[in-house]
Design a protein around this nucleic acid. Sequence first.
DNA 1: TAAGATTGAAATGTCAATCTTA
DNA 2: TAAGATTGACATTTCAATCTTA
Lengths: 153, 153
Amino acid sequence: VTDSGSPTVLRQVFDDLVRFETRLWAEIDAELQSKSGVTLANLNAMLVIDRIPNCRVLDIAEALSITVGGASQAVDRLQASGRCLRKANPEDRRSSVIALTPHGVASLSGALPVFDHELDRWLRRPLDPALLTQFGTALGALRSSGGDAPAAL
Amino acid sequence: VTDSGSPTVLRQVFDDLVRFETRLWAEIDAELQSKSGVTLANLNAMLVIDRIPNCRVLDIAEALSITVGGASQAVDRLQASGRCLRKANPEDRRSSVIALTPHGVASLSGALPVFDHELDRWLRRPLDPALLTQFGTALGALRSSGGDAPAAL
DNA sequence: TAAGATTGAAATGTCAATCTTA
DNA sequence: TAAGATTGACATTTCAATCTTA
């Protein structure tokens, strides 16, 4: 079965992409948990809450490419661990504004150095500076492409 | 909170990598299920079974960067849907040899054209050929680096 | 003892249904 | 009607404990 001629290259790229992302996530997550007590999923959500003013559940869902339901549950877990709060949103009573608690800010501050160290280890060190730049450029183009129609040329 | 100077670039690369992989997986998975009735997770496992002679559960786990427990359950699901079988392994009675059934082979054959079409759409079309090559080179280097020690130079 | 595999419990995500407010 | 959010049912993965065979 398997092949039919040329798509081999793309399958290899897909495989490398998915497998590397899986391992990268697992390794960084393990390091974060052991050294700062925060999961990588928690850290990602907290970074969004910290970055977006008057952050809502929907903002987290969009920033993390997860569903609204998943984002709501992620906020539940952060809140249950005392790292964030839902506050009334004066501008739209359907939603809440999510804010980090002092404990959440402390968690974030403690986790970021570990996170940055791991990113350096797994992304910067293995690549030439030029290749890292190209890698980032390609990822940016891929992420913004949205699998558009031909568009070609 | 947030930043401390330079790691911004790496955080952006990490974010683009994780978010793109998440969307890529979700989009291809949805297309595969609607057009061929196979999930992307199933397809990935079947590709490994098809490629590796006398494939065992452990081989699947390593090829897909998942745990052995997860691979065992993935084989359970494939087997429950009639796409693979566990056969006695004459060389080591602790393990089984996993083989595709005729239905599994048919599923794989039906899914591959859809898969390749989606890979073309999401990976090849958005990128210059040169950039795609660089992207593949970077991913290969990252995947084989294993977050090694300094090693430098 | 260690290697390969299985299993059940817990974490995290999707999906669909529902509720409240624009 | 539609938008934002929540909830419960379901799926998939990890982890730890366990079992069988090398």
